[in-house]
Design a protein around this nucleic acid. Structure first.
Lengths: 202, 202
DNA sequence: CCGATACGCAACGGTCCCGTTTCGTAAATA
DNA sequence: TATTTACGAAACGGGACCGTTGCGTATCGG
């Protein structure tokens, strides 16, 4: 008996290039980030951009959708750390993370895909939602529920409605903002007006 | 001098078929409504669906974008009549119109196009915004300003922020609602919670 | 060194769509 | 009737990608 091989015995032959794999995924994200829709994305364009043969792509992914799913999965989703001092501060942190992400072309286009190509690519959307949307949704839900329990929020508030108010308002700004960046204090202003409401405070 | 011809003298030859024109536009809207993006929309598919030769399309429109622009322009935008009794009622009317439109596949897909293909088709988006978005935006703006003036809304309210709150919350619901229809009283609930805010009322 | 596998590259046949042209027919005016 | 234009259908040459294959080279284990 000799020294153990690594847990998984490497098959004979030249190993696959990790560099090529990364280049392919980077090229995919680049093209998507430049505003290309999934349906317009071509394997040949990805291969060309990545400096790679088509063979190298087809050897790893069976179809375009699988590739895009893997590419989107590499977009890390580091949720902002929440201070936990006040519900208002935590909500501002969550919304400000949305604002910062909306400035990155890659995140922007991914959001577009998730929102408008959901019908055509259900698997893709499902995986993206599970990875990127759900954690944020649950984080916000936890903060709101904490606020209700602590008396910082209205005890009669419907949690889903509260999430729609906060997230929807931010989404609206990212979509229809006049071309430029969003105001740095946007998250704070949104949270304050959502909490106070638009009716006059007596 | 003889009897006057119709104001515009009809040129000799067979006149263009209005029926074909309508069929082409209907086919275009159908295909878009079935979830097809503008870039995937092909003239051949439109011609086939409309039961028309490609020639008949190219004779009328120079390119796909012109056709889509004309097709979208036929989607009427009848703003809801506002009772004017209270700002709350008028806001509910406006938001409920959004809810009803979001149930129509054609309107849904048009919204998708406007939101996610805006970069690729600026002319199309510009015209669509001018025709469909701006009138609604201005109607809501007028209601909010009236509310501020009458004391029904907070005098310190930023009008654009108020519009983002109301429209964004509705948009969020239409996008992420669990597959089915939206609750019939959604508009009313949204307006009430936006007005009251989510903080506890003392 | 040898066999095995991956690599980039180029070429393949096939499909879809492009925008144009041709053809025989239909519908209007003069 | 003669002329003019529009119509649907079909075919064209051309381009973009598809997914596959063959080629010569590179890189691994044995």
């Amino acid at each position: 008996m000799t020294i153990q091989e690594p847990a998984v015995a490497r098959p004979a032959g030249r190993p696959r290039s990790e560099k090529a794999e990364k280049a392919i995924i980077e090229a995919t994200l680049d093209l998507l980030g430049e505003g290309m829709g999934v349906s317009e994305l071509s394997i040949e364009a990805i291969a060309s951009r990545a400096g790679v043969g088509k063979t190298t792509i087809y050897r790893r992914w069976a179809n375009k959708e699988d590739l895009v799913v893997d590419a989107l999965a590499t977009l890390k989703a580091p949720l902002p750390e929440l201070s936990g001092t006040s519900v208002r501060d935590d909500l501002i942190s969550l919304l400000d993370a949305m604002r910062r992400e909306s400035a990155q072309p890659r995140s922007r286009c991914v959001m577009n895909i998730a929102m408008s190509e959901a019908d055509r690519y259900p698997r893709l959307t499902e995986r993206f939602v599970k990875r990127a949307i759900t954690p944020r949704r649950e984080a916000m839900r936890a903060v709101i529920e904490r606020g209700i329990a602590s008396g910082e929020l209205n005890p009669d508030l419907d949690v889903d409605m509260g999430m729609a108010l906060l997230s929807g308002t931010m989404l609206w700004h990212t979509k229809w903002a006049p071309e430029g960046e969003l105001a740095p204090d946007l998250a704070e202003r949104v949270v304050d007006v959502v909490m106070a409401g638009i009716a006059p405070r007596p």
